[in-house]
Nucleic acid binder design. Structure first.
Length: 563
RNA sequence: GCGCCCGUAGCUCAACUGGACAGAGCAUCGGCCUUCUAAGCCGGCGGUUGAAGGUUCGAGUCCUUCCGGGCGCGCCA
């Protein structure tokens, strides 16, 4: 049940009856405890349009709204706020053990995330796209959207041209990704410093895009090696990307000639210095210059604008997406603005919503781009190793009674969870500071705090020899802490809908932190096992645990029963 | 030069997209374990939301200008 939506619907009926036809009730959580659980702010804006006194309209709406069985109190406060307190019985009924309602109605959403560059190991800067995208995909799934994950891997650019050209020159070869990485670095160096090598590398790209069998075979081997590495990282991270979700740049190769022909037919392209470009007037700056979109290079090769255009067309016209979400680095903002603009001109968007959801860089404590340890390394696997080692040290210190296997499980859940949560809990479209001590401190808005709340509940069940699944009935709510806890649990659905609308998982993190904090207060104040109302409180515990666990699961974070 | 993003407590971050007195954690000071995990709970201290104007009944949020910081801008992705 989504209480927020329910309240808004009821209040909007009353607003309409009062003469404010299209007015929104603007319902949100109350900003202060004395204003109840929810507040509606819509009457003030509506009154302005009707020429009424805000308070008078608010009083009429509060009086007329049918809130029976939902709100125990409905008061007008201040200049015309409507303060609502949810009925305890209604709250109790709203508890759902973390289950969600399929409001998505099967609407198809494509989400493009992770997209590592192949032939290189995954780096720390791939983390954000991978885990933010994964969390959003899970939330959309949970809400009943038809989610199609697309891993648009970089398997087709000049990077491969450099690599293959370099190995052609040196005669070297390897099955090990570490070697490929080294070859790649060498190749990049030569590309920058050796003009004739750069030409050969570009020629390899043309061969590849032209379908030369020998080049293709060599390319395929490196892709396979590289992809299996990515798959191992996804597994380690607990990210739900599978080989079936990979549809890389190369998948669109056969579409590129057709894309260019079509754009030309639509009069969108101009030749400029031998390259084919689109000059769209909305990208003209004050200096009169237009930022071009290059869809084909002067040597006949294609760029990522072209493959991305083909991908848009595929996603909207073949996959029939209603929304296409790009979880990509903020530095590509201009690229996506241009891409979407050109796609709309060419009618490739098919009416779908094309959305770039940008994020900033991971910075170290020094404010510079993050590196693992003091070295220059930025391998993602190194980061995950260090997270697990740090977590294991902490777990050993805090709870030495766990056996080795339990210790490993907890270290994994806490270490990986802390890294992911630290990232997911931040809204910033700008950069964010990666701080080992803060995320591993086990205090405040961190994964371990949430995991600890969950473990405490499991411990409670264990100590009381309670089979939580066998508990029946709806809990009666008496104490203020119980009311606050139940209210927070009941907000799960509206929170997920907020994440789906904004593509910002940090709203879910804030929600879960507030939920864990509400539970901790309840736990301190309200004894459970030795209580006259034991069953009611055990039920509240079960709903809390289930919601915490489900919420963390949607973030891709594990829970443990003991820690 | 053109363009995008960011600026909130000493530090790291919120503020549900225009609502009430801007909230958390860390740090700091103090209180609470012979009862369910103290990895916890309760309280104190801490703010001219970079600056100045403007719109509005109401602005951290919208508009303008300026100051700081980051990033992007023709054949890399």
């Amino acid at each position: 049940m989504n209480l927020k939506t329910l309240l808004a619907e009821r209040l909007e009926v009353a607003l309409r009856d009062a003469g404010a036809a299209a007015a929104s009730a603007i319902v949100g959580p109350a900003t202060r405890p004395e204003f109840g659980d929810y507040q509606a702010n819509g009457a003030m804006a509506a009154a302005k349009r009707l020429g009424m006194k805000p308070r008078d309209l608010a009083l009429r709406v509060a009086e007329a709204a049918d809130l029976a069985g939902i709100a125990a109190r409905c008061d007008v406060t201040g200049p015309g706020f409507i303060s609502l307190t949810i009925d305890d019985d209604c709250l109790s009924e709203a508890l759902a053990d973390g289950r969600t309602e399929p409001v998505g109605g099967g609407e198809r959403v494509v989400i493009d995330y992770s997209h590592p560059n192949l032939a290189k190991e995954m780096q720390v800067h791939h983390l954000r796209s991978t885990i933010i995208g994964d969390a959003v995909a899970r939330v959309l799934d949970a809400l009943g959207y038809d989610v199609i994950r697309q891993n648009h891997v970089g398997d087709w650019g000049t990077g491969f041209g450099r690599l293959v050209a370099h190995l052609n020159d040196t005669g070297e070869d390897s099955e090990a990704l570490g070697d490929l990485e080294r070859f790649y670095t060498e190749a990049s160096e030569r590309f920058a410093n050796d003009a004739t090598f750069a030409d050969r590398a570009r020629q390899v790209v043309v061969d590849l895009q032209g379908g030369d069998p020998a080049t293709l075979a060599r390319w395929q081997r490196y892709i396979d090696i590289s992809m299996s590495h990515c798959q191992a990282v996804y597994e380690r991270l607990g990210v739900g990307l599978e080989p079936e979700h990979v549809r890389g740049e190369s998948a669109y190769n056969d579409d590129l000639d057709g894309i260019v022909e079509d754009l030309e037919a639509k009069g969108l392209l101009t030749e400029s210095d031998g390259a084919l470009c689109a000059f769209l007037p909305e990208f003209k700056g004050k200096d009169g210059k237009i930022a071009p979109i290059i869809v084909r290079k002067s040597d006949g090769g294609y760029l990522y604008h072209s493959t991305d255009l083909a991908a848009v067309r595929h996603r909207t016209q073949t996959l029939h997406a209603k929304r296409v979400l790009y979880v990509v680095d903020a530095r590509q903002g201009l690229h996506f603005k241009q891409l979407f603009a050109l796609a709309r001109r060419a009618a490739y968007d098919a009416g779908a919503s094309l959305e770039h959801h940008p994020f900033g860089m991971m910075l170290g404590n020094d404010g510079r781009p993050f590196k693992t340890r003091e070295g220059s390394g930025t391998r993602l696997l190194d980061l995950l190793d260090e997270a697990t080692v740090r977590a294991r040290r902490l777990v050993e210190a805090k709870n030495p009674e766990l056996d080795g296997q339990q210790m490993d499980r907890v270290a994994r859940a806490v270490g990986i969870g802390a890294v992911k949560y630290a990232d997911l809990s931040k809204n910033r479209t700008g950069d964010y500071v990666f701080d080992w001590d803060a995320m591993m401190s086990f205090e405040g808005n961190t994964a371990p705090y949430l995991q600890y709340a969950y473990a405490r509940i499991q411990s409670l069940f264990q100590r009381g020899r309670v089979d939580a699944a066998a508990l029946t009935g709806r809990p009666a709510i008496r104490e203020a802490e119980e009311h606050a806890l139940a209210l927070q649990i009941a907000r799960f659905q509206e929170t997920l809908e907020q994440v789906a609308a904004t593509v910002m998982p940090h709203h879910l993190c804030t929600y879960l932190y507030d939920l864990a904090a509400a539970f901790m207060r309840f736990y301190e104040r309200c004894p459970v096992l030795d209580s006259d109302v034991r069953n009611d409180r055990l039920l509240l515990c079960r709903h809390t645990a289930a919601t915490l666990s489900r919420g963390l699961d949607l973030l891709g974070i594990e829970t443990v029963d003991r820690m």
